[in-house]
């Protein structure tokens, strides 16, 4: 399948990626190639086959829903990774 530029732009918007015109062009062609290859899966008869999402066979791995105290050094270092901080909190721009 071939992609129109608007279609590639739409996917980039969904993916929250700012792409240049050249990137849109390149990815459009490469996605067509890759999806063309992937088409071969349609040959496989999967009638009545269950999908596999995991392979361990584990079911319902429960744990208590309780707050755990996080080590102070780790907490401060995690927050310090943010581009803007105020009073040990991450500062973000207006959302609304």
């Amino acid at each position: 399948m071939k992609f129109k530029k608007e279609e590639i732009q739409h996917i980039a918007n969904l993916a929250r990626l700012d792409l240049s015109d050249q990137e849109l062009d390149t990815y459009g062609k490469q996605l067509s190639d890759i999806l063309g290859y992937i088409e071969q899966l349609q040959e496989v008869d999967t009638e009545g086959v269950e999908p596999t999402a995991q392979v361990t066979g584990l079911e319902n791995s429960w744990r208590e829903d309780e707050a755990r105290v996080w080590d102070d050094f780790e907490r401060v270092n995690a927050i310090n990774q943010a581009p803007e901080i105020e009073d040990e909190q991450i500062k973000v721009g207006r959302v609304l």
């Binding site: 590639i8 996917i11 980039a12 969904l14 993916a15 929250r16 990626l17 700012d18 792409l19 990137e23 990815y27 490469q30 996605l31 890759i34 999806l35 973000v92 721009g93 207006r94 959302v95």
Partner: peptide, 27 residues
């Protein structure tokens, strides 16, 4: 704008293969 922080951070921060896979997966 918030949306531009997302898009520009990701557009500039990720390399070409990461972006290609994100595009393919999103599609």
């Amino acid at each position: 704008k918030l949306i531009d922080i997302y898009k520009k951070s990701r557009g500039k921060g990720f390399g070409s293969e990461a972006k290609r896979r994100i595009m393919l997966g999103t599609y």
